[in-house]
Amino acid sequence: MICVELSFTNDRARLAARPAHRERLRALHEQGALLLAGPWEDDSGALLVFTVDRARVDRIMAEDPYYSTSGVDVVSLRVWCPILKPEHG
């Protein structure tokens, strides 16, 4: 899994780009490429957990202008190796 942590400001460009970004996230979730995504409670940033490899995450981020929009900074992008996870029937 790949975890992406974002940091936000209240830049108008970010707020304008957010609806389209969230639609992309919904589609990725439906495809199984994105496990979890959401903002911190104070809206200072967000965490996304992808189920695909690093190359695919890089493509996803390159195709979504939100990640390079003013007011959005990628704080970290790390491979995560959970030892406990939900069982799938």
Results as ranks from 00 to 15, higher is better:
Asp11Lys: 04
Leu47Ser: 08
Thr69Trp: 01
Val74Ile: 14
Phe50Glu: 08
Leu6Ala: 03
Arg12Gln: 14
Ala16Met: 08
Leu36Thr: 15
Ile2Cys: 04
Asp43Trp: 08
Asp64Glu: 08
Ala17Glu: 11
Trp40His: 14
Gly45His: 07
His29Asn: 10
Thr9Ser: 14
Gln31Ser: 13
Arg26Lys: 12
Asp53Arg: 13
Val52Leu: 02
Ala16Gly: 06
Val57Tyr: 01
Asp73Tyr: 00
Arg26Leu: 08
Arg56Gly: 09
Pro39Lys: 06
Asp43Asn: 14
Arg56Pro: 07
Ala55Trp: 04
Leu36Ser: 11
His29Lys: 15
Ala20Met: 05
Asp58Pro: 02
Arg59Pro: 01
Arg14Met: 04
Ala55His: 12
Leu25Arg: 03
Ala46Pro: 04
Leu25Ser: 04
Tyr66Ser: 09
Arg14Ser: 04
Glu87Asn: 07
Arg54Thr: 15
Pro86His: 01
Leu47Arg: 12
Arg22Ala: 10
Arg56His: 13
Asp73Pro: 00
Lys85Val: 03
Leu77Trp: 00
Ala20Ser: 11
Leu28Glu: 10
Ser68Trp: 02
Leu28Asp: 07
Val75Arg: 13
Leu6His: 02
Pro65Thr: 11
Ser7Ile: 13
Leu35Asn: 09
Phe50Cys: 07
Ala17Lys: 05
Ala37Thr: 11
Ile83Lys: 04
Ala62Lys: 13
Pro19His: 10
Arg12Met: 10
Ala37Val: 09
Arg54Asn: 11
Pro65Gln: 09
Pro86Lys: 01
Asp42Cys: 04
Glu63Leu: 09
Ser70Ile: 05
His21Pro: 06
Pro39Glu: 13
Val4Phe: 01
Ala13Arg: 15
Lys85Pro: 01
Ser76Gly: 12
Phe50Trp: 12
Leu47Met: 14
Arg12Ile: 12
Gly38Asp: 07
Asp64His: 05
Gln31Thr: 10
Gly32Arg: 03
Leu84Thr: 10
Ser44Ile: 03
Leu36Ile: 15
Asp53Leu: 07
Cys81Asp: 09
Cys3Ala: 15
Arg22Thr: 14
Gln31Gly: 05
Val57Asp: 02
Pro19Phe: 06
Glu23Cys: 05
Glu63Ala: 14
Gly89Phe: 01
Gly89Leu: 07
Asp58Asn: 10
Val79Trp: 00
Gly71His: 03
Gly45Ile: 12
Gly32Ala: 06
Ser68Thr: 15
Phe50Gln: 07
Ser68Glu: 12
His21Cys: 06
Asp58Thr: 13
Glu23Gly: 08
Ala16His: 10
Pro19Ile: 13
Val75Ile: 11
Asp43Ala: 09
Leu36Asn: 09
Lys85Tyr: 02
Val57Ile: 05
Ala13Asp: 13
Ala37Asp: 04
Asp73Lys: 10
Leu77Ile: 09
Tyr67Gln: 04
Met61Tyr: 05
Cys81His: 11
Ala46Val: 10
Trp80Lys: 00
